[in-house]
């Protein structure tokens, strides 16, 4: 039993450790490890324009290879993360970013969850309040109580 548990614990630890490795196909020589870190972060954040839902780090589409190369070249040329992202947006629109700017139509995306949560809370509070008012127990009239006692007495016999 404890051997089985140890096995499960081992497997769990293994999946947690292994999961966040992305499959980049070609390897680039970076002049500094800092650049390489930024490269990985950028290629995870940029979305492949041709694919439906993949970042360019995961995708093997030719366009993703081109974009990875472009990111690499711009990083080595000393461009900042923002400059690289802006350059990509200029070519492909906000579509290429998995975290779009909080501007224009994308603002709705950022605000919608908050607005929905807020509406839900308001509705919940209203319902709870109204529920409290209705929940007062109805009082039986003397006549009804008499009938009820009689019915119970009949039932007991």
């Amino acid at each position: 039993m404890s051997a089985l548990r140890a096995l499960f614990a081992g497997l769990l630890a293994w999946t947690l450790l292994v999961a966040p490795v992305s499959a980049v196909i070609e390897t680039y020589e970076f002049s500094s490890p800092e650049l390489e870190k930024r490269y990985h972060r950028l290629s995870q954040e940029l979305r492949c324009p041709k694919c439906q839902n993949q970042n360019i780090a995961d995708s093997n589409a030719p366009i993703s290879q081109d974009l990875r190369q472009l990111v690499y070249q711009q990083l080595e040329a000393g461009a900042s993360d923002d400059a690289i992202l802006d350059d990509m947006v200029r070519r492909y629109g906000e579509f290429v970013r998995y975290r779009p700017d909080t501007e224009g139509a994308a603002l709705w995306l950022w605000l919608a969850p908050v607005a929905l949560l807020g509406t839900g809370l308001v509705v919940l509070v209203l319902m709870l309040r109204r529920g409290g008012a209705v929940a007062e127990a109805p009082v039986l009239s003397d006549e009804d109580r008499e009938r009820l006692d009689k019915l119970i007495a009949e039932d007991d016999q």
Binding site: I63, D66, L70, R91, Y92, G93
Partner: peptide, 12 residues
């Protein structure tokens, strides 16, 4: 090299 394609935002 596809450089003009990249600048144009060609994806297919």
């Amino acid at each position: 090299e596809g450089s003009l394609g990249l600048d144009l935002g060609v994806y297919g």
